[in-house]
Design a protein around this nucleic acid. Structure first.
Lengths: 232, 232
DNA sequence: ATATAAACGTGACGCAGGTCACACTTAATA
DNA sequence: TATTAAGTGTGACCTGCGTCACGTTTATAT
């Protein structure tokens, strides 16, 4: 069932305030709090859906989220993942009248739904806040460029190696982690198919590069994985 | 030879001022003019190069520019095109210490090189200017997402059809135009190879969909081209 | 506890498209 | 107008990987 938990918020005393919001005045923080609702969702719940009109920007306080959209052939493609401290949906808010992509929780998440108009107001009045948001948008986009080109040019082994290295180095900072994704997700991330992921994972296991137990992954030979990522 | 033509600029009386710059005060426009150099380049010249430290944001006044980067396998990939009114290099300026992509003129271009610090200053002081820039960044990124997913999922015919339709509908607004790209460029845009482009173009010609004379393209059957784009 | 739906494993098949090699044509430069 | 470089056309080859089909296992819900 659908279970939305609303928490009380006051932004002014937020324990996990964003870099950008640090530039807001007390008055602006109050304004922010007025337009903000604090919510918790569980794995599989959608934060917002592609194609629908948008109303909020989401500040991710806790949890792991996939940002994705449906391609022309109907297959889903993961654009990126979001982690605590990220804002979600800014591009749609500023650049479109509807959501141009979806966001889905991959585990229990704790979110602040910020009213779109409130957010836009702050952008248009506080230049420091705005600049900080812009900086994070730009960094984000630079990552996209890399990913875009990599997915264009690498073969499936390289793409999968990239995905595994991403989780090990960027997300969990450990060679031993629990994949928060299904193989279908992994395929949607890497621009390939579930079947290819299955086969390649088996290859990696047989090659002594990783071990897999359900979703538990351990990277045994990171050097080889990096080599596969590079020339794949 | 290298022939850079510096023109005199004063921003305050610019005949092609950007939407964002309209929000600048007279004083800010003067500051902008101080940090800006007006330059003309010819086809093939690079506006800035991936990997080098950046110093400027470029405002494109006239001409057509490709924005591109080198992939992991050394092949070039076109990220997007820029047309008059666009700012180039903002992502690198705000999100990195070096240029993370290159920009190259595809025809004679007229540019304003804006000092990076000047630009950053304006971003950090004038919220309306900042918001307007952010809006264009967001729109840009949304287009990017579409392209990203399309290139992932379409076959080569679909990708080529997309490219041709892009020029006909977005750039030249005519079914009859001169491609500003080589076939190598078309391949770098579509994420395929020169040879495949050659073969597919021939297919399109044989199918009565287009005619080609050197770089002169005429679209004879746009309906079919759109169908190819959709289910390709 | 049982039903239903996701998620995963695996083999067989086929072809889209990448690679290589070389000839030819057009454009650029001195 | 000669020389070089860049761009294009085309055939032969071959393999990576998508598709289909079906069986099995693991979650999820009632």
């Amino acid at each position: 069932m659908f279970e939305i938990i609303k928490n009380k918020t006051t932004c002014t005393n937020c324990g996990f305030i964003s870099q950008a919001a640090k530039y807001l005045t007390k008055a602006e923080l109050k304004e922010l709090a007025q337009g903000t609702v604090d919510v918790s969702l569980k794995r599989g719940d959608k934060l917002f859906v592609e194609g629908l009109p948008h109303s909020h920007v989401i500040y991710l306080r806790e949890g792991f989220v996939k940002v994705h959209m449906t391609g022309p052939n109907g297959r889903d493609q993961i654009l990126k993942f979001a982690r605590p401290g990220a804002y979600l949906g800014i591009q749609s808010l500023m650049g479109s009248d509807i959501n141009r992509f979806s966001a889905t929780a991959l585990e229990k998440v704790h979110l602040c739904y910020i009213n779109g108009n409130t957010f836009k107001n702050l952008i248009q009045t506080n230049a420091s806040f705005s600049a900080e948001i812009m900086t994070s948008l730009c960094k984000d986009e630079l990552n996209y460029f890399e990913r875009f080109v990599s997915l264009q040019q690498k073969n499936n082994s390289g793409k999968l190696a990239d995905a595994l290295l991403y989780f090990a180095e960027r997300v969990f900072e450990s060679d031993n982690f629990t994949l928060p994704l299904t193989y279908v997700d992994l395929a949607a991330l890497s621009g390939t198919t579930r079947e290819s992921i299955t086969r390649l994972m088996k290859d990696f296991v047989n090659g002594g590069i990783i071990t897999v137990d359900h979703r538990e992954i351990e990277i045994l030979n990171k050097a080889i994985l990096k080599k596969i990522s590079e020339n794949g």
